[in-house]
Design a protein around this nucleic acid. Structure first.
Lengths: 241, 241
DNA sequence: CAGTCACTTCCGTCAGATGGAAGTCACTTG
DNA sequence: CAAGTGACTTCCATCTGACGGAAGTGACTG
């Protein structure tokens, strides 16, 4: 007899990870929370994590004890505030926030478009800081998301020094069909690529005028942040288009 | 022979929690990361968590597999990017961000002081959103931190409807000796207190002028956000000082 | 070159994680 | 209103897999 499959979300890949089983399962439970789904009932959570309800209940109890999970009086489970705290500790451990946020604020204020900062992570890149455009039509992206290297403006920008790509990198609908973006790497005191800063614009309003406005803004902030971090912006100047 | 006690941080309360042991210990390992200490070596981590090194190593391996821990090539462990992701999912699950951040931006821009938003959590309150003052001298506070109810401007503001405290709440050096703050609750569509919004100012520059400037700003944003959330601001107006 | 320290691997033992079964409670259906 | 359903919880006997001591590796120091 076929399974009913009443719920929309399919049993999302029980995680290919190995290790201490109980911990493994607890982490799968945490990662079962996606996007902005509200409180989840035990049944749904154990289904998503592929766990026996008894086991899920026990693990959730432990997670709750540390504030990783919040149990609502009305029933249902949500992520807990400890994650807010640790997410913030993580950000601060990058020791970039102090330089990045003011730069993103300037970019957004002067361009009226969304500004973001990515760091490289192995063969991926991850959005670590982001400010949304003040305009009503804007692209949607979330802090913490990982994306491929080499594709998209930030993806190219993070490897621009290796590939000799002219800076700033400008893409139109490359990774996402309806988005254009401008990005430039930022160097640290060791001359390494600390990250990539840039602006993204819905493609329909990315004309010559907005490009002419944003290109120097992105370069300016990349060079300024490189200096702030004690780095030498010469390699960026050298690749300037 | 007395232990050398080479490290500054004392074995920080091995956590009074109970539950599935392996999970319990893994979570203690995560919470062993404090503030902005950089990469921690295995020895230090197992010491802080009160774990056998073998056990800590095994648990860290599992945590790494899910991106909760990042192991640096140069040795040492850091928090991982999954925490960034889940911290953000947590924020979005409150379904407040969209209304809170623009309000905080207006408050900061018009007052040139730090703005923050707190939510109630049982008999505590927690800072969920915050924007730092653009000025050089400012108070330091971190998103995610929990503080007592009933003390401090936000602590009083969150219970103002129960206690009949005039709004906005203004405190000078109440919870922190060198900080003044102004706060007002925000109501949701159910008439419940959704949180508290406000401004904090170093006490030395909190004079009559800045108070006269900030008080109406805080009230204006609390009332506007209450309306945004579909709530009725009448109870706030009624308590207006 | 011996000594120390940080980290890792191995493996026998047994604490404790697991999940089936049964109980509770709130709703729905006939 | 009784029987049925489904979400959640408790209990407990079984046996898996987490644990940590011991030994190994490799880098650095005096």
């Amino acid at each position: 007899m076929a399974k009913p499959a009443l719920h929309e979300v399919p049993p999302p890949a029980p995680a290919p990870v190995e290790g201490v089983r109980a911990v493994d399962r607890a982490l799968v439970l945490l990662r079962a929370f996606r996007d902005d789904d509200g409180p989840l009932p035990l049944t749904e959570l154990s289904r998503r994590a592929g766990l026996n309800m008894t086991t899920a209940l026990r693990l959730l109890g432990t997670l709750e004890g540390h504030g990783f999970i919040k149990r609502l009086p009305s029933g249902g489970y949500m992520l807990g505030a400890t994650l807010l705290l640790l997410g913030d500790v993580f950000k601060r451990s990058l020791r970039l926030e102090h330089h990045v946020m003011p730069a993103l604020e300037r970019l957004r204020a002067e361009s009226r478009e969304s500004a973001a900062f990515f760091v490289r992570e192995g063969d991926q890149r991850r959005c670590v800081f982001r400010l949304d455009s003040p305009q009503i039509v804007r692209d949607i992206a979330h802090v913490g998301e990982a994306q491929p290297l080499g594709r998209g403006a930030h993806g190219r920008s993070l490897v621009a020094l290796e590939t000799g790509t002219p800076l700033p990198v400008v893409t139109r609908g490359e990774r996402l069909p309806q988005i254009a973006a401008i990005a430039c790497p930022v160097l640290n005191a060791a001359g390494e690529v600390a990250g990539s800063i840039g602006i993204s614009v819905p493609l329909y309003r990315f004309d010559a005028e907005i490009e002419a406005l944003c290109t120097p803004l992105v370069m300016r902030e990349a060079i300024a942040m490189t200096r702030d971090l004690g780095g030498d912006p010469t390699p960026l100047e050298r690749l300037r288009r």
